[in-house]
């Protein structure tokens, strides 16, 4: 075990997988000579050269698609988006091609590709640089979506993603790259895709979350403990496949659930978890499921407006009290 930054954990995963399989390469804007916009790929050029660490033009649609074609033809591309906001320009390749080619050709090809990069808000970056896309992509069949919150999970899951034979979207956060955590350094330590983790045990309320806002939830749980409410935190880690078994097991214990999701509310992950809970654990619930999400408006720039927009520790605490019928 080692204490590593999130970016170092990702780099270690990429490095180990590139060393293990020469068909793995990484491509994206600024990944090579510049060492990565957020320094995830720092030093990889020196080890693997320009052939396997490839700077692209600012042409998301084009290089995402070249990645898909290369994956069809036997390679294992890691495509880095500077952020997932820009991946929208490549949505045709992800949604219409990567996820569907195998199906529409009756299984004649597979597309073992990882699209990765930062997702969701990273502070006052304005409306176009702050969007959380995980539930949008999870909506489409054939795509796996991973959104970890801690360096150790990030490394183990990214390695699984690179070895996976399907299209995987792997989401990070600019604001987590410097975050430190325990990382398993065994090159064969993989974390399975689609398994949630109970990160805090508690008997009173289940807080379901994933990605960066997990850290807000951790703070909220500490606040709640001061008031005698013991929260159990389920970190989904993977949005799709969605590990409802772990969520339901927790809810059977606590009988109350708040879903904390750093995305817009409409048809989001929180909505999906809420639906599945009422369907599969209705009798175990002592209160309606509450969700804490962004509001249904775009990200503002101004600091006070931004703070009003972004879910806070207090919002999570209030959500928990709401299902606990305590004010």
């Amino acid at each position: 075990m080692a204490e590593l930054q999130f970016r170092e954990a990702l780099r270690q995963a990429i490095d180990e997988e590139m060393a293990r399989d020469e068909n793995v390469f990484i491509m994206g804007e600024e990944v090579s000579e510049y060492n990565g916009a957020y320094k995830v790929t720092e030093g990889l050029l020196e080890t693997y050269g320009f052939k396997r660490v490839i700077d692209t033009p600012i042409a998301e649609l084009g290089f995402a698609g070249i990645g898909v074609g290369a994956a069809m033809n036997g390679l294992r591309p890691i495509i880095e988006f500077m952020t997932f906001n820009f991946a929208v320009l490549a949505a045709d390749q992800i949604i219409n091609h990567a996820s569907k080619v195998k199906y529409m050709l009756g299984g004649q090809v597979s597309v073992p590709i990882v699209f990765r990069g930062p997702n969701a808000s990273a502070g006052q970056l304005g409306a176009t640089h702050s969007v959380a896309y995980e539930s949008m992509y999870a909506h489409f069949p054939g795509i796996k979506v991973i959104h970890p919150s801690e360096p150790g999970d990030a490394k183990g899951l990214l390695k699984s993603a690179i070895r996976d034979n399907d299209t995987v979207l792997f989401m990070e956060s600019e604001q987590m790259y410097g975050l430190k955590g325990e990382v398993n350094e065994d090159p064969e330590h993989l974390i399975p895709i689609g398994k949630a983790a109970v990160k805090r045990e508690g008997s009173d309320v289940t807080l379901v979350t994933h990605g960066k806002i997990y850290h807000t939830v951790v703070k909220a749980a500490a606040e709640l403990a001061k008031e005698g409410i013991e929260a159990e935190i389920v970190d989904l880690r993977t949005v799709k496949p969605l590990d409802m078994d772990t969520v339901i097991a927790s809810v059977k214990k606590t009988h109350r659930c708040v879903v904390v999701d750093e995305a817009h509310p409409f048809a989001g992950t929180a909505a999906e978890v809420g639906y599945l809970l009422q369907r599969d654990a209705f009798d175990d619930l002592d209160a309606p499921v509450v969700r804490v999400t962004l509001p249904d408006v775009s990200a503002p720039f101004s600091k006070p407006l931004f703070d009003a927009w972004f879910p806070s520790v207090k919002d999570v605490v209030d959500g928990a009290k709401q299902v606990y019928y305590k004010s």
Binding site: F63, G65, V68, G69, M72, Q93
Partner: peptide, 10 residues
Amino acid sequence: IPLGGGLAFA
């Protein structure tokens, strides 16, 4: 078309 580019790339 990008897929074609990717086949050639590989």
